[in-house]
């Protein structure tokens, strides 16, 4: 056994963790090598000294501060627990509040949707404007039905046809729409 090999076993030897031929080999080396024997003895002394080192203590205020920190931590946990409990088992008052809130939000959304529809034009229509639109629609349907291309030929649009489809000129239609939409 070399010095390096024997020194690798010092700790285990001191703690009684090696036996048999390994222990025998180490003992033989120690008998033959005073330097290793001295190192082993120093290690034994060092171990004892280390175990007897002065114990360090925390200041007296530590327990008080620790308790305060733990209580703060417990309160934080309780806040989240209470929130979770309220979500999982809501009170009737909470349910009513949520229902009223949801209904109010739905109404607000509907009003906004009708006022500013995605198409860009207001969704609000007066009866008179609707009547004009319905009349135009009826005219258009009638025209299409009369001019159905039975032979597969495309329909040629003429000024006369346009006049039939739109009996109310655009300028006149605007005059009808503007005063009504101004009220909204």
């Amino acid at each position: 056994m070399t010095c390096a090999e024997s020194q690798n076993l010092f700790s285990e030897y001191l703690e009684g963790q090696i036996t048999g031929t390994v222990q025998q080999g180490l003992v033989e080396h120690l008998e033959a090598c005073p330097a290793c024997a001295q190192k082993l003895k120093l290690m034994r002394i060092m171990r004892v000294r280390l175990s007897k080192l002065d114990r360090k203590h925390l200041p007296d205020t530590f327990s008080f501060e620790m308790r305060r920190a733990l209580l703060a931590e417990m309160n934080r946990e309780n806040i989240w627990l209470n929130r979770l409990r309220a979500l999982l088992s809501p009170r009737p008052q909470t349910v009513w509040s949520a229902a009223v809130g949801t209904a109010f939000a739905a109404v607000c959304f509907a009003v906004l949707w009708l006022t500013f529809p995605p198409g860009g034009q207001s969704g609000w229509r007066s009866d008179s404007v609707t009547e004009v639109d319905a009349a135009q629609h009826d005219q258009s349907v009638r025209y299409v039905l009369e001019h159905l291309p039975f032979d597969g030929e495309p329909i040629e649009s003429t000024v006369k046809d346009t006049a039939r489809v739109m009996p109310v000129p655009p300028s006149q239609a605007r005059e009808v729409v503007q005063p009504v939409s101004a009220t909204f």
Binding site: K56, H57, L58, F62, S63, M66, R67, L70, L71, M74
Partner: peptide, 17 residues
């Protein structure tokens, strides 16, 4: 919390060392 404080008292000095 008191139960946890007993643990604190048991280990505080060992951990500090």
């Amino acid at each position: 919390v008191n139960a946890f404080e007993v643990i604190v008292n048991r280990y505080k000095d060992r951990l500090f060392n």
